[in-house]
Structures are given as structure tokens and as C-alpha cells.
Design a binder for these strands. Structure first.
Lengths: 105, 105
DNA sequence: TCTTTATATAACGATTGTATTATATAACGT
DNA sequence: ACGTTATATAATACAATCGTTATATAAAGA
């Protein structure tokens, strides 16, 4: 019996992070532009702590980066993530986002 | 609040199937050649029913196809699956498999 | 027909993932 | 200093996932 190699483990871990609809939608939006937490809170029908937790998972794995500006924390994709190219392939293989929404908070 | 679109749901469902190390390793092997269930049973350190269950999930989603030959059931990748190209991109973005193992059962 | 081999299904338990509510922290504006 | 807004964390509940063992089915061979 083989033990699953690190390479496979890394990939499956990465894909697990993308395998949640909310996180995938978050990443899709971040592919377009930076967003703050509150953008996502009003975008999804889940609580603010739930959004915060999703963002934490993505941030901990370095898929996204954050910067604070005044009272907001803005997130963006991390172009230096080892799987960044694959992420873009996945994101662009979905339908493009409907409409560029104007910023609100 | 937006509801996550079908497209995102489909993709996240697909990625969920790939986000398990055992299933990813199975797909990696099927990318090389057909395998029967018993190949995987001796390959992994999990029970035969566990292997069978992973294969069922992949088959139900049409990612893999099966054919019966005598007492064996052989699985292969489904080249007509909507996400087949993406699957190949993911598989080839991992390290290639070490050694072509000889068939055993 | 009986045994063996290959595979699938059922029942169940442990672990993990994702939501909620309540509460804490940090920055801003008055 | 205080209230408001933006975000994070803790505690908890529930659902999904993945393993196991026990058992069923299907084909092969004696």
C-alpha cells in the first residue's frame, strides 16, 4: 500500500478550500477586484462570522492577502501562491460574473 | 444577497470530489491507464468497501466510466465529462507518478 | 453445486465542516 | 469618553464525510 504523496495531499488540501460554494464565489469576486469583508457580508445570505471564517481559511492558506485601510480590511488574491495559476484556470473556467457591482461600504 | 449560481455550485461539487487524497490518487492512476477495484484495494491502506465507495462517488458524477470484464470491473477517466480538461490540468499540475506498476490481479 | 474471488451495499461511529448566537476588539466620529 | 461600524473569536449545534465491520451479489472454477 502506498501512502498518498505530499504532492497529492497539498493538492487535495488546496482543492478542499475551493470546494465550498461561498469560498469559490468569494474568490471569483476577488479575481475581479479587492473586496472588504462587508462586501461579502451583504453579498451572501450567511452571518458575518460565517463570512469571516471563510476568509480566515483562505487567508491562512495564503490564497488571499489582506490589507487594512481605516476600519476596513481588504482582501485580494495572492499572485504568489503556488497554485495561483491553477486557481485562475478554475475561476476562468466558470461563467464570467454578471455585472460589476458598485462599492457600498 | 446573491444566491450562489448553478455554475459555482457545479464547480464546487466537482472540486469537492477531487478534494480527497484517495480519490485524487485514484484519478492520477486512471490518467495513466485503466485499473480495476482490486488494484486500488492493494494500493491504499483502507478497506475494500472504502475504495468501492470512492469509486462510486466518481462514477456517479460521471468523472469515471466502468466496464466489466469477467469478474473484474475496470475504471477509466471519462473524456466526455464537462470538466475533463480541467481535471487533466489539475492532474498534470502534480508531480508525475513514480513508476509504472505491473498489473497484479 | 459449492467455494473462492471480486465487488457492492448497509449500518454505524468518529471526525470534520459549516452554520448560528454571543461576545470581544479595533478604528472612527462626535 | 462614548457610541457606532467593521471585523474576529468562542461556544455550540447540526450536517456531511469517511472510515469500519458485516453481509449481499456476481462470476469463475473445481
Amino acid at each position: 500500500m502506498i501512502e498518498t504523496t505530499n504532492r497529492v495531499d497539498e493538492m487535495s488540501q488546496f482543492l478542499k478550500l475551493l470546494s465550498d460554494g461561498t469560498r469559490l464565489e468569494i474568490l471569483r469576486r476577488l479575481h475581479v477586484r479587492e473586496h472588504c469583508v462587508c462586501d461579502f457580508v451583504e453579498m451572501f445570505d450567511i452571518s458575518q462570522p460565517a463570512v469571516s471564517r471563510h476568509l480566515k481559511l483562505l487567508r491562512q492558506s495564503q490564497i488571499i492577502l489582506e490589507r487594512r485601510e481605516r476600519q476596513w480590511i481588504y482582501f485580494r488574491l495572492n499572485p504568489d501562491h503556488p497554485q495561483h495559476d491553477l486557481l485562475l484556470t478554475i475561476l476562468t473556467s466558470m461563467e464570467p460574473l454578471p455585472v460589476p457591482a458598485p462599492k457600498s461600504c
